[in-house]
């Protein structure tokens, strides 16, 4: 199989380059893209990428495969490269540290900005706070986010304003707390999102929805935040 791999080491390289590599894949098994990377690394240990759980739940190995963001560990090679040539690049829009490793601090900063923790001013009961199954249901499709950054780095608005637009991942979590019946900081959360950038830079491009490896829908969550802002404003 032909592989084109993005390489960059800031200590030795002036600018990044795409390396053309050949790899014999084992017969009869549809490897994941991460398996391909591991095979390449066994040959050339200097290839750098993040990986850990190798089952799509830790969110380490978000990369760009043939132009599409996704998790290397749960993307079959046949799906990433249906025409046989696999092109691997780092997630777009974030500074590259080395090879497929990007500097995610801007992404994490946006996550922190929405204050991603439950706020409840009432004294906690001796047992759990009660929540109806219907209220709990509202958190589905939100809390499952693994912070892989596939969505935010596929979002043109995030490329343009990574410092001010919270981005799909952060907004999905913002809504996760807005939607939680146990959270009492709804007004404060909404006030913090009301500026022209944090939420309103979303243009509904929906790249986030099409790349999310967990099948989540940040655009819908953003729409719901806007609706909440509107009904609060009126």
């Amino acid at each position: 199989m032909q592989i084109s791999l993005y390489r960059f080491d800031p200590d030795t390289d002036e600018s990044p380059r795409m390396d053309s590599l050949e790899l014999d894949l084992p017969e009869g098994r549809d490897l994941m893209v991460l398996d391909v990377l591991e095979l390449l690394k066994a040959e050339d240990s200097s290839i750098a990428y993040r990986r850990s759980c190798r089952e799509g739940v830790c969110g380490s190995d978000g990369i760009n495969m043939n132009g599409r963001n996704g998790l290397a560990c749960i993307t079959p090679v046949s799906e990433a490269a249906p025409r046989g040539k696999l092109t691997l690049r780092p997630l777009p829009g974030l500074p590259v540290v080395r090879d497929l490793v990007v500097d995610m601090s801007q992404f994490y900063r946006q996550y922190e900005k929405i204050e991603p923790w439950l706020v409840n001013d009432t004294a906690p009961p001796a047992r759990e706070r009660l929540q109806s199954p219907e209220d709990r249901e509202k958190l589905n499709g939100l809390y499952e986010c693994i912070l892989c950054a596939c969505c935010s780095t596929a979002c043109p608005s995030f490329w343009w304003n990574p410092d001010k637009f919270v981005g799909p991942a952060g907004l999905l979590q913002a809504y996760r707390f807005l939607a939680d019946s146990r959270d009492t900081a709804t007004a404060e959360r909404l006030a913090a999102l009301e500026d022209p950038f944090s939420v309103f830079r979303c243009r509904g491009i929906m790249n986030c929805v099409s790349v999310c490896p967990k099948g989540l829908n940040p655009t819908r969550a953003i729409g719901k935040i806007r609706t909440m802002l509107l009904s609060q404003g009126i």
């Binding site: 760009n64 690049r89 777009p92 829009g93 590259v96 500097d103």
Partner: peptide
């Protein structure tokens, strides 16, 4: 999708834009 920027810090640093915007 856009090219990733090759160098650290190239993607951000627009803090002083806030006043104008």
């Amino acid at each position: 999708m856009a090219h990733p920027c090759p160098r650290r810090g190239g993607g951000g640093g627009t803090g002083d834009l806030a006043l104008v915007t």
